Simulated assay, not measured.
Amino acid sequence: MDPALLHARAALDWLLELGADEAIGEEPVNRYALEARSAKPAQAAPPVAAPFVASAPADPVAAARALAEGAGDLPALAAAMDGFDCELKPGARSFVFADGTAGAPLMVVGEAPGRDEDIQGKPFVGAAGQLLDRMLAAIGRDRADPDPARAVYITNVLPWRPPGNRRPETPEIDRWRPFLHRHVELAAPRVLLILGNSPALALLNRGGITQIRGQWTEAAGRPALPSFHPSYLLRNPPAKREAWADLLALNARLRAPS
């Protein structure tokens, strides 16, 4: 057999194996027109299913509020926060809830976990945390001491580390605010120390920490003192003088009769 014919036959067999069992001409064929000319009666088109319309996602802030209100104690609150849907969770290593002694007279609220906090699963354990420990020790407070005269309880607005240690964004603060307010209610401190803009936004609905620091106010129904975040003090050592004044005011408030 002619080698050319053998080659053509092999190519045709290969096309058949691929499922190409119909010859296609050089001109397009309007098959709708062919069906219209067919002697067969037209068949009714199959019913078309209604398009799927996805329901609007639930309000994350309302969902957070419901979960927070349903937590009757701190372990239940931690479980609710750990299971709460958050875009930060897949990129973080550890859930960071709190450290220190629950029920301490002083509760410190920071922004969000950083690299070291994400590794250890505790708030304020990096360079900023070490500075915070020294600041608290200067007024007789120690997160490792359960004695109410020295105890302190520490947490953050966000329990998950933001990428690149960036600051929490406004939608993230809004989403986690109900949990933070419930956290304060369950921890029941006498006084709040608010460190940085993010906790000020979450608890006071205002930022500008350089303008509001050192001014006593109220947050979550408790006396609250805004001050600089330790990471800011590491970048701006001259601000430590103002932070020390805040600590002295805080210490006086804690020592005053309740």
Score class of each variant (00 low, 15 high):
R65F: 02
R213K: 11
A239S: 09
W14K: 00
G221N: 07
G70P: 01
R31Y: 12
D99G: 15
A56E: 15
Q43F: 00
F228I: 00
P148T: 03
A252L: 14
A92V: 03
W160G: 00
R161G: 03
A127Y: 02
I194F: 10
R93I: 03
E22A: 14
G126K: 06
V152M: 10
P257H: 07
R253F: 05
W244E: 11
V152Q: 07
R134Y: 01
G126C: 09
R115G: 13
A33R: 11
L18G: 06
G110K: 03
T217D: 08
M135Q: 15
R9P: 00
S94M: 12
G114Y: 02
R206H: 06
F84H: 12
L247R: 03
A138I: 00
H181A: 13
P57I: 07
R150H: 15
P123I: 10
L12W: 13
N165M: 04
G126H: 09
E172K: 04
P163A: 15
L225H: 02
G196L: 07
L132Y: 05
K40Q: 13
L254E: 04
G100D: 06
P90Y: 08
D59Q: 04
D133G: 07
M81G: 12
A78S: 13
A104Y: 12
F52E: 07
I154R: 14
L132D: 01
N205I: 00
E242N: 04
P199K: 11
P47E: 02
R206L: 08
P46N: 03
P146M: 12
W160T: 01
A36S: 07
A128K: 01
P90D: 10
A200N: 13
A71P: 03
R235A: 15
G221H: 09
L131W: 02
A200R: 03
I154Y: 02
L106A: 07
N30S: 13
I212W: 04
L106H: 04
D2R: 13
E87L: 14
A64V: 10
K40F: 12
A45H: 01
P146H: 11
E111F: 01
R241D: 10
H181G: 03
T170G: 02
A58S: 12
A112L: 04
F97L: 09
V109H: 07
H7G: 07
A256F: 10
E172R: 06
Q211G: 05
S231L: 12
V53D: 00
R134C: 06
E69M: 07
P105L: 10
A71I: 08
Q130G: 14
Y232C: 01
F84C: 05
H7I: 08
G121D: 11
A71L: 08
D82S: 14
D147W: 05
D2Y: 01
G221R: 05
V152G: 08
Q215E: 14
P46G: 09
N251A: 15
F179Q: 06
